[in-house]
Amino acid sequence: MLYKNELIQSFLSGDMRALARTVSMVEAGDLQSLQLLAAFAREGKRARLIGITGPPGAGKSTLAAKLAESLLDRGERVALLLIDPSSPFTGGAILGDRIRMHAIAGRSGLYIRSLGSRGSLGGLSRAVPPIVQLLENFGFDAIILETVGTGQAETDVIETVDSVVVVTVPGLGDDVQAMKAGIIEIADVFVVNKADREGAERTARQMEEALKLGPSDVPVLTTIATTGVGVPALISSLDAHYQTMLADGELAKRRERRLRKALHAYAASLVSVRLAEWVEEQLTGHWADIESGRVDIYSCGRRLAEEFQKGR
C-alpha cells in the first residue's frame, strides 16, 4: 500500500516515471486500477485532444511529430500516444512510431508512449480513454493521439478527441472513394500529405468537392510532413477549429459525449463481470436442460436477467 501512495505522490509531483507506471497499470486492464484515477482527479484545466488518423504509411507519425514540435515551441506540454496494431495470433506487436520522433525525443515537457491495439478494431486500444484521462490529470496542455493505420471504418478516434485530422496521400482512389461514409466523415481537418508527389493537388480538389456536399466546411490542406511544409497552416487550422468549438459550445458537447460514453462503458464492464459470475453460479446443475434442448438459451437468459435485476 505504501508503494501505491508513493506512486500517487510522485505522479502528483510531475514525475514522468510515475506517469509511465500508472499508464501500464491502467493498460493492464485491471478494472480496480482505474480507482487510482480518483486520486489524480484535478479540477479546472483540460487538455486539448487532437487525433490523427489515416491509412498506413500516409505519414501520421511524421505529422504527429511535427505538430508536437510546433506546440512544444509555443511552450505547451505535450503527450503523444502512438498506437500500432497487435498480432491477432500472438498478441505481439512492433511499435515503430518512435522512429519518427527523433527530432523531438528528449525535449522537456514531452511524453511519448507507444501502445499495441490489443484486439480493438476501431483504430485505438481499449485502454486509450482512461490513459487520456491520466495524461490530462498529469497536466499536459495537448495530447496527440495517433491511431493505427486505418481504412474506411475505424472511427473510434472521434469519441476520444476534440479535433480529428484525417491524413491521406495522393493516388489512393477516385472521387467516389471521397464520397463514402466512414472515416472521411469524422475529419475536422483533412490533410493530403506527401504533397510533393504527383496528383496531390487533384486529390485535394476531389476531397474538397466531396466535402462541400456535406454539412460543414472541412478545410483540406496539403503538407509535406518530412520537411514541415504546410505544418504551420495545419496548426492555424486546428487552432481556428478549436476556437470555433470553444465559442459555439461544440467543444463542451464533444467532451460531454466522450465522458458519458466512457462512463457507460466502465459501468457496463463492472456489471457485466458480476453478471457473468452470477449467471455461471445459476447455471450450475441446470446445464443439462440446455444441452438436451429442453430449454433454449434465450428464454434462460431472459429469466436470469430478470432475476438478477430483482436481486438489486
Partner: peptide, 12 residues
C-alpha cells in the same frame, strides 16, 4: 520477439 507475443518498441 513479436512472434513470441511480446510488444516490441523499435526506436531506429
Amino acid at each position: 520477439l513479436r512472434d513470441a507475443g511480446m510488444e516490441v518498441i523499435y526506436t531506429g
